[in-house]
Design a protein around this nucleic acid. Sequence first.
DNA 1: GATGGCATTGAAAACGATTACATAATTGCT
DNA 2: AGCAATTATGTAATCGTTTTCAATGCCATC
Lengths: 358, 358
Amino acid sequence: MVLDLMHDHDNLTENDCKMTVGIKDVARAAGVSVATVSRALGGGPVSEELRKKVEAAVAATGYLPNLSARRLRSQHSHTIGLIVSDIRNPFFTAVSRAVEDAAYAVGMRVILCNTDENPQKEAMYLRLMQEERVTGVIFAPTRATAQKLDPHQLGFPVVLIDRAAPPGQTDAVVLDNAEAASLLVEHLLAQGYRRIGGLFGNTSTTGAERHAGVVAAMQQHGLQAEARFIAPTPEAAEQAVRDWLREPVQPEALIASNGLVLLGMLRGARAAGVSIPAQLALAGFDNDNWTELAGPGLTVIEQPVYDIGRTAMKMLLERLEDPARSARKVVLSGRLIARGSTAQPIAAHAGQQGAEPR
Amino acid sequence: MVLDLMHDHDNLTENDCKMTVGIKDVARAAGVSVATVSRALGGGPVSEELRKKVEAAVAATGYLPNLSARRLRSQHSHTIGLIVSDIRNPFFTAVSRAVEDAAYAVGMRVILCNTDENPQKEAMYLRLMQEERVTGVIFAPTRATAQKLDPHQLGFPVVLIDRAAPPGQTDAVVLDNAEAASLLVEHLLAQGYRRIGGLFGNTSTTGAERHAGVVAAMQQHGLQAEARFIAPTPEAAEQAVRDWLREPVQPEALIASNGLVLLGMLRGARAAGVSIPAQLALAGFDNDNWTELAGPGLTVIEQPVYDIGRTAMKMLLERLEDPARSARKVVLSGRLIARGSTAQPIAAHAGQQGAEPR
DNA sequence: GATGGCATTGAAAACGATTACATAATTGCT
DNA sequence: AGCAATTATGTAATCGTTTTCAATGCCATC
């Protein structure tokens, strides 16, 4: 009672100049201690009676918890980092959306970082994640960084997406690149193409793995694939294709190691004036919106993009529950979507069982 | 000296069990006070000599600042919120990248939120922003929320993007929708189209403004436009087009109020088997990747997407510097990119100066 | 030679929450 | 009835910084 009077007095002088209402003010308004307020809000052991009082006081005062203070004291940031090369790559856009949905669903925040495939930016952002004391990180590293990545050094768990690290080191969720590449190659071979080439990104393990998969699948048929490695951008891919198509010996079909490269490929082919698939077949990864609509439709491997993000988040949460468990790699399968860009070339000319296409 | 010995002893017993190294440890290692370390790190007035010592101690201890603590004490979150309907919309993807670039460049973090055009989620995320004590928010609100938005109530400045609020209330950076719509209409008319319809998103002011722009431009020529309002998704747009094309009287040209709607339109037109532009011309907003490559190429208004994000961030920073200055609305111009989807329909049949096309 | 101003430094308070610990009240058990 | 165990609550310490405030030393000035 005496206390209440004192506080009322305080209110008269203080209330007007107080900028933000804190847990203290709620406690005063509810006539309880700050600890009780904290417990009521955090689901601790509080009698129903006081809980009601606190809730009323919260509503009355318009209290909003200060997440920075909460994080500092509880040593729990409820924040994860998502580090990708460029959110404008539709693959990462979709993954990002899945990660964010899953994160918000369990009350976590997401900090998104774009590295532009630049190891320096990767290092900078990893450091930033440490300063943020993030709970964990979902990361699509460049090859350079993936090799020297030591998750135990970082202080938080890491789940790799799209790109793998040395086996057994880190949790990861990736596409079965060998399988996917094989699907593409087998499809192209079945359609009658033999001289198959490819453009692969040179910054990630993914580009390398998809290349290896193509090579392996071709070898099974006693064939060779000519591969070129480029920066994984539409611009680089377009230039590479234009150059390639000016050379004396040209490919019958071209495989792109991701959506951006495929986009550049198509642009390059158009610029060179070759018709698809009559003069050149095209296939690649990522079932982006435009692939269905461009030209005759582009044959692609569809990745389970949303699943990848959701699974990555799930693995991160599992890892947090059991930091000791051994590293896992989840390998998801892609689906071949055959479209006009790899239609049978011979169909345009003659019958369909030509012995030696072109 | 004596102190140093003591500290060495401390290190022996403490170092092993200390989880994280804080500013205190740095101070001890450098032989200065915590205040000096803080000042050395924050650029305060510190002698060159001590600054060196502190830097050495930071390197030696592997100190990493705790951003939560910093934010709590300094009352400055260095964080902004970016609230959009769906990051998978390429328009928002691009804007988001620009915002993030600009934010990181001035040492700020970005929290990204997807509302799915759902006012409830908008309210939830705005509240979250308050709890995060964000420095400011960049927001593309639904029409419903835009109307009842009171930035003074929120406690942080807001810059609207893509969508406007009641004039004079809030900073905003938007496209000149009337001008852009007029560009599209004039182009279609010049190409010989007369019976022009449109599909417009029904959740944002943008859809409404673009509709108004089309209507106004048509009226200038004594013509009417038939408009339909739909959820701004490819699915809704596809369905709407399929329905429309089954009706007795059909449009010669269709305008889409954004990239997603345009995408659905094209799908719907394809599904209905109409050829573009011979039977139906298509035009819309957002120069997304696929619009150049799909079918004959789609005529669109290109928005300065990166500029929009960068400008929004700039306005937010200016607003932070001068909270009192009056609200500003930056209106950027779109650029018409004419492509095959609006080629002259008569060219397909006969000469090009037909009096009454179709 | 005392005084005032300036620049540098340290001690301690503060930011706004959570949580360890102590206390009081209630319950269950013998 | 008495004692241990359990529960609800309050007090105070704590998280890791920044910032206020006072103290120190130095120089120039009168």
